[in-house]
């Protein structure tokens, strides 16, 4: 294996993406990602000197509109989709706990 990406790097990227993997998953993912990154590296064969990057293929440019507030009046339906809600608010676990204080 060419080792374009190490197990530690995979763990680092997982942290950035807010994902976590078990050891067994890391064993499976690391070589797969390594192979795919190998495929990505074939792009170095293309001479892109002086070529502009394309980020959009839309024919619309800088479309402006008035910034108008719109009340959809659907707070109840929206809250129904929340995993946990109370008194018109979305409920989440404590944002700061002791384990985070220690970090």
């Amino acid at each position: 294996m060419a080792n374009r990406i190490t197990r530690e790097q995979v763990q680092h990227v997982a942290g950035l993406a807010k994902l976590e993997f078990t050891d067994a998953q890391l064993d499976a993912f690391t070589p797969q990602l390594d192979d795919i990154i190998g495929l990505f590296e074939t792009l170095s064969e293309v001479d892109t000197t002086g070529v502009e990057a394309t980020s959009s293929v839309s024919d619309q440019l800088n479309v402006m509109r008035e910034d108008v507030a719109d009340n959809w009046g659907q707070s109840e339906a929206l809250l129904k989709n929340a995993p946990d809600a109370a008194r018109g608010f979305i409920k989440v676990p404590a944002i700061i706990d002791e384990s985070e204080d220690n970090e």
């Binding site: 990505f40 293309v46 892109t48 070529v51 990057a53 394309t54």
Partner: peptide
């Protein structure tokens, strides 16, 4: 960025 340039090509 390289991929975005290859896209143009």
């Amino acid at each position: 960025l390289k991929a975005a340039k290859v896209r143009t090509v």
